[in-house]
Design a binder for these strands. Structure first.
Lengths: 306, 306
DNA sequence: GAGTGGTCTAGACCACCTT
DNA sequence: AGGTGGTCTAGACCACTCC
């Protein structure tokens, strides 16, 4: 059945169906994207219905839906049964994304590192800890303390304390034997699920305890990384506090700019390619310093960022 | 036309078509997901063809394709014309994603902060800087130095140096008047495009220069955040080095767990909800300390992460 | 050339939202 | 109740891949 020469018959694209123009939904898609980008529809306004678009483009509903699916994937419209397609953005949103597949990528410890567990004990939450854990002072919690070492280096490069609800007491014995991440073990054994990790990075100075653990002087600069593992319901599953001597660790991350949503991501699935990973490597390289100096005296102030 | 009672007729799901079972593709999808998860197909192996699946499930090709589309979105299979559907993963890949829409979210400076530009001058790259910039020592670069302040606080909370290729010299005059991010200005004015931001965070001690800028003592702990803005071709567009006194700034980020690809992302598009932002707030709260102590003496070492 | 997925049409019932 | 998107069927041509 030769495709009736609709309003789009002059279009062309790739492979095709009935007659000989190539796929039509990309053309429809492009037109709609352009119209949206040109501001033809206000944010919150509704796109014409599928039916209307079918008529306008002389295409079947299925074809129009394919085009609309892409608009949705690009984040331009939201669709809902009964309500139509609403404009939610004029341009495909771009984001810088730091995407992490395994916790190891977040934690950034090479596989040549390991944890020396010093102790697992029951503690009582004090006021400070209460703030961190969103727990009531006096409440009992579990604390694991450990040193993280890397092969071939005498000194540990991190002193870590992990706090867990007392409910996890049962698995204390297993921690030493655990190969995967702690949070994964908690998920597996208790059926909880980490939905979110909140990470906080700051520079602090070593107190006496941490200093002795890491064999550095008290007051030495540390990179302290706190990680809160939060369940879907907001419960804190685990709090890990890592203390890294300044010269033994550096935190790195790479943010890739990409459109949000399925558009590009799905293209990756079109056929297997190297699955781009992101977060970067590991232990600190050699420390670097650079001299800074200023001559000029221009002055101004701007709210601008980097 | 009542749907012929195929092998799936006992299934049920949601809303539906011909007869009365509800949508069928979710059921088909679930079955395939389970089979893949159970290891029925090896990685790299091919899934049965659409035709075969149609027969097996007694569904139309369109319906089977809908199911397969989701498998693809979940990252379980890759499809290609002529070659079939290949298993590329046994489980839906989960990632923790830190997604940042604007640079401000990355930089984490509230809108109540601003930059006091101290100087913009031409410098000559020394050896250390050469490493950072991937430039040859001796090469001329542009350097901007500035203090970042927040309303109501006397002391700046960051001393920043930004390095740019000498080619951007023309816009030196505009920097003071710039409201948006510097990198955005470079993009706009020079037609370059930031494709990637590499960020490195470490604890360092203040050298004399930085200390005097920030009015802190030499040797005080700093959080140093370096950001490399890299173009698609790998060119370094800008390097920003931020020095934050330890007690005046903290870097925070939230990673949300989500399946990679369209699956969940698309669900967000199903209907507008609050578009979950991620990266979190700003200036440092009150400094916190906590006592650490250990009693027990269990010992073990594991490669495991938090 | 046979097989596979990509795209298309035409018509249909249904669930959901708006009116 | 009418409109809208969600899902389904049945049949078709095409481009691409692999043998």
């Amino acid at each position: 059945m030769s495709r009736p020469a609709g309003p789009l018959s002059a279009m062309s694209a790739g492979g095709g169906a009935g007659a000989g123009d190539g796929p039509r939904y990309p053309a429809i898609m492009r037109i709609l994207v352009e119209e949206i980008g040109a501001g033809r529809y206000a944010l919150g306004e509704r796109l014409p219905t599928e039916h209307d678009l079918c008529q306008r483009f002389g295409a079947s509903r299925h074809t129009v839906r394919e085009a609309l699916r892409h608009l949705k994937d690009m984040g331009l419209i939201a669709r809902r049964q009964g309500s139509g397609s609403v404009i939610i953005a004029h341009y495909p949103e771009q984001r810088f994304v730091n995407s992490i597949t395994s916790l190891d990528e977040l934690v950034q410890y090479a596989e040549t590192t390991w944890l020396d567990v010093l102790a697992v004990d029951k503690i009582v939450v004090d006021e400070t800890l209460g703030t961190w854990l969103r727990a009531t002072p006096g409440e009992p919690w579990l604390r694991l303390s450990a040193l993280r070492r890397v092969a071939g280096v005498r000194d540990p490069f991190a002193y870590t304390e992990v706090f867990m609800p007392i409910a996890f007491e049962a698995l204390v014995g297993e921690i030493g034997a655990e190969v995967s991440a702690l949070y994964a073990m908690l998920e597996r054994r208790f059926g909880v699920r980490v939905a979110k990790i909140h990470q906080s990075i700051e520079a602090v100075t070593a107190d006496a305890n941490v200093a002795s653990r890491l064999d550095i002087v008290s007051g030495a600069p540390l990179l302290r990384i706190k990680r809160c593992y939060v369940a879907e319901d907001g419960t804190l599953i685990e709090l890990a506090v890592n203390h890294h001597p300044a010269d033994r660790f550096r935190y790195e991350m790479t943010l890739d700019r990409k459109p949000v949503g399925g558009a590009l991501v799905n293209d990756i699935r079109d056929w297997p390619g190297p699955n781009e990973a992101s977060a970067t490597a590991d232990r600190r390289g050699s420390p670097v310093h650079h001299a800074t100096e200023t001559n000029d005296d221009r002055d101004g102030h701007t709210p601008c960022a980097d």
